[in-house]
Nucleic acid binder design. Structure first.
Lengths: 364, 364
DNA sequence: CGAGGGCGTTGAAATGTTTCAGTCGGGGTG
DNA sequence: CACCCCGACTGAAACATTTCAACGCCCTCG
């Protein structure tokens, strides 16, 4: 059946499954339960949805029947009739980046509080997969969709928002802001990071990030430039090392390019647009025999757990990852349930977390 | 509405959503489409499900009507009537561990090929959350459930398998094997890792992992002990450093305990039961001024991407993460569709990936 | 000219719930 | 004793789709 270079299969041939659990082969329905308990179908439904209106004795009888038959409510039928789903969905941009997992966890806590399921999808930064997921979610009639999109201005996103499905953009902003969003002030984040480096005495700094099409990369770079200029430092000494993606690999290759610069142009510090890049850069630096932070200081962005866990713990600009998710979930729920909902663009303030990768304070 | 220490809200008060997209406030149904296109309701369904049986001209008319009305098929109704869902689900053990994300990605590729959605849930190693997710998934009547369980022998898992829902255990094995499973030979993995360390000349090695309740930890340790004995090394020199979880933090604290050992008992190498522990240990070693691998060699397990990305790239025992997921998905699909399905316990063979954290080959 | 046969379309039944207007006794009140 | 109300339960309608037997029509062949 399968062929694959390196696995063995110990087929412990257990032939088939046990007997079908109910007489006619179908899963038991409320009707079956009602028959078994000797009550009407409506009563069973009441036990399920309004237990208080049914007398204790019949309720117990019905519950016993359910247990005996192994009844499980059919959610499709429930949803069809009730017209309302019990689920939220989050379409994350890159499951390989722990940042998004943390956001998802924040969403899930809020969903849990509202007693909703959360479906997590992963577009892996591919627009086609994103579209497919969105299609399916709309067909499922989920109560709300949270998404960190590949392209915040893609037309299929606008469609969904206009269709009336509650919709919140997470960690991104679209030009046309006719929906809720939750994000972080990236310009400020860039400022904080570079101000910290300047504060540590660095006069030549690399910005590592890209592609430039990503709004956050642009804004973090803008913040960096602003503060650089405010300190009166020459623009040429803030070197833009553009990458093709925000991955560890790209961080490593940025490190190579950085090492290739003539020594009088070589920066003494790097500000990376996310922590994955920073980890890659750190790895390259260490293997190249550079000391961090003495030869090269590094600042990352996001403050994922792996940043603190690096061999040289990374200084990073923290985003409130879980809080981002929680807030997004609350907004989407508000839109779903509150008739006079007002779209909001919530913006969080990032904060610097200084660790070993930028050394200890250096007095002026 | 919200209060939270550190975020500002720029509410761009866009009052409400646009007009309801269909006349009566409800989403348009096949009936509406049929009316708009001047055909019967059955024909619309045919366009949706068997486009070939309907003439080109009417098909186009119907499709135009759908587009104009913004019709989206209601999946609940479809599923209720058709009796079959279009989704698989994976309940992962720990979303914070990239290993499981890679498994999920493998599952998703297989699901995609079968044109199914994949719902990813995360139990965060909590049994109650796992149970809640399973409940919901059974209610949804998903086609199959894949799970890396908190406890492979928990009774609620057996219930599901017996209920007839296709069910595959991923990266775990239960005592009662009346269902499919996909896993890796962990004893062999332990052997490989420790043999590699012995090969590099180490005579005192720590095993870092726990709690011992986890089957994999036991088996990896067992493999380590087997090969240790086979080489005639004294059992006392394979030191068991038990941890309370498989996290970076625990790895770090294991490092502290390791450093606290009297120097003649102190191991020259450590085999960690997963990469997170190894990363934590590596971090502790580096901050404590130890050289890796000269003063302490480290082997991890899983070979997550962050292992290769560490400052000192980690030697690790690779599991075929994506392949694990793909195979699991194929098994669950076989169980779902093939009437004479046979339960299989697929076992993969792990492989050592040697990197800098164990140094270069040392001739005997 | 009638029979037969595709092809394209139709209409109704069925899926498992929830909801809601009723029904049925029984007990309290006037 | 009549009245009313209340609590507990019932039965049917509705939800949006799929499926399938049946139907009409046109064409072809005998």
């Amino acid at each position: 059946m399968f062929q694959s270079g390196w696995f063995t299969r110990c087929a412990t041939s257990i032939p088939a499954k046990g007997p079908p659990l109910t007489r006619n082969g179908r899963a038991p329905s409320v009707k079956d339960v009602a028959a078994a308990a000797g009550v009407s179908l409506g009563t069973v439904s009441n036990v399920l949805n309004r237990p208080s209106v049914v007398s204790t004795t019949t309720r117990e009888r019905v519950e016993r029947a359910m247990a005996e038959l192994g009844f499980v409510r059919n959610e499709s039928a429930r949803q069809l009739r009730a017209g309302t789903s019990r689920a939220l969905a989050y379409v994350m941009l890159d499951g390989g980046n722990p940042f998004f997992h943390d956001v998802a966890e924040g969403i899930e806590t809020a969903a849990d509080d509202a007693d909703l399921s959360l479906f997590v999808c992963n577009s892996s930064s591919r627009s086609d997969r994103e579209a497919k997921h969105l299609d399916r979610l709309v067909q499922q009639r989920v109560q709300g969709i949270l998404i960190t999109p590949v392209d915040p201005d893609a037309p299929h996103l606008a469609e969904i928002a206009q269709r009336g499905t509650p919709f919140v953009m997470v960690d991104r902003l679209s030009r046309a802001g006719d929906h809720c969003s939750v994000s972080v002030d990236d310009v400020l984040g860039g400022r904080i990071a570079v101000e910290h480096l300047i504060d540590r005495g660095h006069q030549r700094v690399a910005f590592v990030g890209g592609p430039a099409g990503i709004g956050q990369v642009r804004e973090r770079l803008q913040g960096a430039r602003e503060v650089w200029a405010e300190f009166g430092l020459p623009a040429d000494d803030l070197i833009n090392l553009s990458t093709e993606a925000m991955t560890v690999n790209e961080g490593r290759s940025a490190g190579e390019r950085l090492a290739g610069l003539p020594s009088r142009r070589r920066p003494t510090a790097a500000f990376c647009a996310n922590d994955l890049l920073a980890l890659g850069l750190l790895q390259h630096a260490v293997t190249a025999g550079l000391r961090v932070p003495e030869d090269l200081a590094i600042v990352g962005f996001d403050d994922i757990d792996f940043a603190a866990a690096a061999a040289v713990p990374l200084t990073s600009v923290r985003q409130p990852r879980q809080e981002l998710g929680r807030t997004a979930a609350r907004l989407v729920l508000d839109e779903a349930t509150n008739p006079d909902h007002v779209h909001e663009q919530a913006t969080f303030v990032p904060a610097l977390v200084a660790r070993a990768s930028t050394g200890t304070a250096r007095r002026k």
